[in-house]
Simulated scan of single mutants.
Amino acid sequence: MNEANGYYDPITYQVTQQEEGWTVKAVLDRKLKLSKRMRVRLKTVENGITLNGEACYLSKPVRAGDVVAIRMEQETSDDILPQDIPLHILYEDEQLLVVSKPAGLIVHPTSGHYLNTLANGVVYYWQAKGEKYRFRPIHRLDQDTSGVLAIAKNAYAHQMVSEQLKKGTVDKLYHAIVFGCPDPAEGTVNAPIDRNPENPHERIVIECGAHAITHYSTERVFIDAALVKVRLETGRTHQIRVHMKYIGHSIIGDQFYGIARPNESREERHQWIGRQALHASLLAFDHPISGERLVLEAPLPQDMSELITRLEQLDETER
């Protein structure tokens, strides 16, 4: 990263023979996939958009071999206090930082909760390396959900991956340990989700809600429990937790969306893990610059592995 003069390294595209005669705007739109909002923003930046290193009109035609470039000003998250929090980094380059978030860690500071978040740790990490970025999570994980989380280092990278999320080309796989054994063993939950009118903090399946689709498949079966793999087609708040409850297989340890009247054995299992047994195990998307498919994985954390061990031991005892 070249931080000279308060700018990041430019992002470039070299015009091909097939694109000769296009305008600079066409290259920005079709090849760099620049949003209208970002294009307008870059026009206010000195040399934010250049052709062969020089400022240009967007209507200017290009020739084969020309280089269209954009450059962005450095940004920082001055409203986030740096805090030394250990990070488990899965991948990092000049565009992205991908971490494995532990359970119990909130992603972003909220009103009255300014410290002990992932954002505090990431800002500290960047400052310690002498780097300047703004904290831009591409997606979110609940406080008590662990696993893969991607952070963009600039507005362009954030836009490019966010567009993939909207198009449904990002693969998001989770593992959950649920009560009961789903029947059928694999299937799709297509049920709209919205806030509970009686409790704004809770989401429920409701006819007038937002479109929500969850695919699941059972990987292991225990006595009155199962390890399931879940793939999200949409990304509604608390979607997996709400959908699994909806089909009668709430996640073990989920005190908010858990079973309403657990029997004694289920109540005991709720205490075997200190949070919902839900883990974002895989995130895959196209790199915002190279287009290469990135596949980032995080193994099951210790508390979920220990829960599986206890369920295995219970199986052996009750056989």
Rank of each mutant, 00 (worst) to 15 (best):
H108V: 13
L90C: 08
T23V: 05
P10D: 10
V62G: 00
L97G: 11
I70A: 02
I11E: 05
N5P: 04
K31C: 12
T23S: 15
V15L: 08
D79F: 14
Q83V: 04
M1H: 08
G112Y: 09
P61A: 00
A64L: 01
P82V: 13
K36D: 06
K33E: 07
E92S: 05
L28P: 04
I11A: 03
Y13H: 13
E3R: 04
L115T: 15
Q95H: 10
L58R: 00
S59Y: 02
R39N: 05
G6L: 10
I70E: 00
E54F: 09
Q95E: 11
P109R: 13
S59R: 05
V107E: 05
N2I: 13
P61I: 02
E92C: 06
S111K: 12
V107S: 06
N2Q: 13
I11C: 02
L34I: 05
A64Q: 12
W22H: 09
I85A: 13
P102Y: 06
P61V: 01
V67L: 06
L90H: 06
L81N: 12
K101P: 04
I49G: 00
N52R: 10
L34R: 00
K101V: 05
G21M: 10
R37D: 08
E19L: 09
A64M: 09
E54R: 14
L90A: 05
E3Q: 12
E19P: 04
H108Y: 14
A69E: 10
K43T: 14
V107I: 11
P102V: 10
